[in-house]
């Protein structure tokens, strides 16, 4: 188990370094970036003259941002800054640290994503069980049709369809604001519905595999009821693979919050990220990118670990390999 854990953490670390290298290179390559000025002609004093700043101030800025060091040292400070939560200041909001913006906005997005996952699980598990037990019945066929529609649409289209029905036609729910609980119903639902679609489809299929297997026939032959079969045997075995689909779903969900926050005007990190991308606020873009990437990687790691803990076969295949 320890070896499995070590391998996964190492793998995650390598992936994180790769992503940070990509964002770093892209940030350096960005046109007009302040950080690329040591490549300009004439060096520091020339640039200081053109910006009308005293060379001493410029020199201190250069050494503060490690601009006189080779690129890999700069990259090292960039990653270190992220890991110790001491990143630069935003272009768009002068004097404001990007970490401060992220600190206030990220928990909001994370809460939104978490509520969506919980909602999706609460709905998808019973739906998956019902459709599998009533295989090919009218309930199964119609629910699976709806689930396919839900899977096919991205969360922002689902959001618009929900707005049209519940806000424009029925006037039941608000679409602007974030103070009362009603404000969260539509955003959470629009994030949850695509997840519900794919999760319930997946659960139905893996549960069907279990229900068609010989041990279930054995339990039924010994006089066990359907409730007993699903409750104490089949559901357990089919919830396990569900963990693997939840992982990529969570990554998609983190990105989904960006668009949902845009549509519902919610003050999450996605909102800041979008405006930063539009205004070319490079520090904020890159720091939030790293954060999103880090969150997604950690989620994937947790999913893999859960899977490893739950299924001894996975662990063993890692230990051998």
């Amino acid at each position: 188990m320890l070896r499995f854990l070590g391998r996964r953490v190492l793998y995650m670390f390598v992936a994180f370094l790769c992503i940070s290298l990509v964002t770093y290179v892209l940030m350096k390559a960005a046109p007009g970036s302040f950080l690329s000025m040591n490549f300009q002609e004439g060096g520091v004093s020339q640039v200081a003259g053109s910006y009308n700043v005293s060379p001493i101030v410029m020199q201190s800025l250069v050494s503060y941002y490690h601009l006189d060091d080779p690129w890999y040292v700069q990259w090292f400070y960039y990653v270190k800054g992220f890991l110790t939560w001491h990143m630069g200041t935003s272009f768009e909001y002068p004097g404001m640290k990007t970490t401060h913006i992220i600190d206030t906005a990220f928990p909001f997005s994370f809460r939104l994503a978490l509520m969506a996952v919980v909602t999706a699980l609460i709905v998808a598990i019973p739906v998956g069980v019902i459709t599998a037990v009533k295989e090919n019945g009218w309930a199964d066929v119609s629910i699976m049709f709806i689930a396919m529609v839900g899977t096919a649409l991205p969360s922002y289209v689902v959001a618009v369809l929900l707005i049209v029905v519940f806000a424009l036609w029925l006037h039941w729910l608000p679409v602007i604001g974030y103070t009362q609980w009603q404000d969260y119903v539509l955003p959470v639902l629009s994030l949850a519905i695509p997840m519900i679609g794919s999760m319930s489809r997946y659960l139905r299929n893996s549960l069907l595999d279990q229900l068609h297997s010989e041990y279930v026939t054995g339990v039924l032959a010994k006089g066990g009821g359907m409730r007993h079969v699903v409750g104490s045997h089949a559901l357990r075995n089919s919830l396990l693979p569900l963990v693997t689909v939840v992982g990529p779903q969570l990554a998609g969900l983190m990105m989904g919050t960006v668009f949902i926050e845009e549509i519902f005007n919610l003050p999450g990190l996605g909102h800041f990220f979008t405006s930063a991308a539009n205004l070319r606020d490079y520090p904020l873009i890159m720091d939030s990118t790293l954060l999103y990437a880090g969150v997604i990687l950690i989620m994937n790691l947790l999913v893999d670990l859960t899977y490893g803990v739950l299924d001894p076969r996975i662990r063993r295949s890692f230990d051998m390999g």
């Binding site: 960005a30 990554a251 990105m255 873009i285 999103y292 990687l297």
Partner: peptide, 17 residues
């Protein structure tokens, strides 16, 4: 490694650049 990338984020950065 590319599979582990948050793909939409990557697209956003590419467009920005």
């Amino acid at each position: 490694i590319v599979y582990g990338f948050p793909s939409l984020l990557f697209s956003i950065i590419m467009v920005v650049l």
